[in-house]
Design a protein around this nucleic acid. Structure first.
Lengths: 108, 108
DNA sequence: ACAATCCATAACCAAATGATTATGGTTTTG
DNA sequence: CAAAACCATAATCATTTGGTTATGGATTGT
């Protein structure tokens, strides 16, 4: 079951267009499908489809408002991926300082 | 360029069989194709193909020895994935303690 | 009311993907 | 040396995937 969640996550993130959408929603916050389509490099229907896949992986959340649909990123949905990665502990040690640094910056 | 590396990585990890092979190599250490095939649930040629994909993502390394090929995991190849994830900082805070814990256990 | 906008779904298509069986090249074993 | 074992590649196939255009439903603007 955690298996299936991880699978949907990895598959959702396997496509660069989808990662692009997720990254943009994370960086720039909530966006309409239209706004996302303008810079996505693919057609509006394709953006909708990709968003649906991200939605099933719980990476995004949507909110209808009139004729527009606003999508927002749910970065906490990356947790299973983080869990999966902690199995491969050794390489983390090297990254530890960077991470600590990041967390410090986040606290400011 | 880091882009392409991340892409090969995500795509390589998108398949559960491939993740299974990688996990096994990480947990149990170096293995021959034959040994991997026995428990992989797919045919030997498929194991070879998956290993090739993992190899192109630098997630595994191979070493020929007579008629057998020994594969081993290269977990440090997950680094680009870790880098990518640090962009989504917020959720890391929650995982920080677990990570610290893990690193402590690793030092023993 | 009518036209335009926003979005999702449908219909369709080419290419990629995951799998199989068949084959052949090396190397080891009997 | 012959047979068996190990592995990679080739040929083939069904399914999935990422993309398009077409359409239609709902909402907003004139």
């Amino acid at each position: 079951m955690q298996r299936a969640a991880a699978d949907r996550l990895f598959k959702a993130l396997a496509d660069p267009t989808r990662r692009g959408l997720f990254e943009r929603l994370t960086r720039d916050g909530e966006q309409t499908v239209h706004a996302l389509t303008v810079r996505a490099g693919v057609s509006q229907p394709m953006v909708s489809k990709h968003l649906t896949i991200l939605k099933r992986a719980k990476l995004v959340h949507h909110r209808r408002e009139g004729r527009e649909t606003h999508y927002s990123a749910q970065p906490q949905a990356l947790a299973p991926l983080a869990d999966w990665m902690t199995q491969y502990g050794t390489f983390w040690r090297d990254r530890f300082d960077q991470l600590e640094n990041l967390l410090e910056r986040m606290d400011k």
